[in-house]
Design a protein around this nucleic acid. Sequence first.
DNA 1: CGAATTTGACCGGCGC
DNA 2: GCGCCGGTCAAATTCG
Length: 211
Amino acid sequence: MASASESMLNQSLFFEQDMIISSSSSSQNGIIFPFHHTNIFASFPICNNTLSDHDQSIATQQKQELITSQILSLQRSASNYWAWGELSDCMGMKRSGGDDHLGVAAMKMKKIKGRRKVREPRFCFKTMSDVDVLDDGYKWRKYGQKVVKNTQHPRSYYRCTQDNCRVKKRVERLADDPRMVITTYEGRHIHSPSHDDEDSQASSQLNKFFW
DNA sequence: CGAATTTGACCGGCGC
DNA sequence: GCGCCGGTCAAATTCG
């Protein structure tokens, strides 16, 4: 148990270093590297819109924190995950190329300084799973369901039940492979996972380290 | 009976 | 300006 946590720690530290490298060296495809012992693969496309260096570093840091947190919390239930992150808090961003199923969502924006519109950082998992809602350690309440165009499966919308925690997630099935579940997280948890299983202590310790 | 989910209405962004 | 579409709200319904 202790060794597993330690291993995860090292993995995530390595991950942070790669994130920094990727933000300056790759603008389209990002990087892909495996989390060997969890079968998690991560790829981080970097937004190529015009962000200042300062904004870039802040956004990258936020993304790192979000992804690290989510991977830590998902590690317990993970099997055959693919994951990718998206730097989405930049103005007027459009996804280029495919990935239509994730959508250029008309996401709720918030204005900063009265002019800039910024999206919450988002992070997606693609998972081979029979169940739609993965046990990621947090408690979610469903607040909506929508049939999106060109897909036969509805998309479900969840919000974290914790007071003052604004984190949301969307869950949908891949149109061309219904066995795959797309889970999109948006925002940052302001608390530890609420699960009371035996992993919670180690998990919260790791969270403390990264947050 | 309170909590959680369902579901149609509504809203705002975006493309034409 | 209008219509489409994704996201959210909230009343109704279901569940535990």
